[in-house]
Amino acid sequence: MLAFSAFAIGLLFGGGLLLAGMANPAKVRGFLDLAGNWDPSLALVMAGAIAVAFVGFKFAKRMPSSLLHALMQLPGKRQIDKRLLVGSLAFGTGWGLAGFCPGPAFVALGGGSMKALIFTLAMLAGFAIHWGIERK
């Protein structure tokens, strides 16, 4: 049941990315190009997503377990450290370079893009590098 709902939610999430224009790297880079012809669309993606998710998390925070009886696993981390900052800098640099972040990369890969496949394989290698260094 948890896998079924995760698949349906992944499908919805992917549809949201496609409709929003997030699965189009040229559009993402148009948003990141403040000094050129700036496309503000992605600010509205963020605003719409955060506003709706805010309501959902307001309820989720008060629930000891999920509606499908899974443990409620919301992050409790608060510290702002070097890992958060350096990791975010590296991520943002890669995001700006290709116009892909993880979700849209999977969606574009599902659409059959060869370039998305190359990006996704490199991203998975990045996950593996982190895991290789940090696993205990």
Binding site: S5, A6, I9, L12, A20, G21, A60, A70
Partner: peptide
């Protein structure tokens, strides 16, 4: 290239999906 309505609606779908994954699966 500005697509206010589809981007806002797409964003809201992302919000619905994020809320559902928390409420149904208890995950981020």
């Amino acid at each position: 290239n500005f697509t206010p309505w589809s981007s806002l609606t797409g964003g809201m779908l992302l919000g619905v999906a994020a809320a559902m994954l928390a409420l149904l699966n208890g995950r981020i």
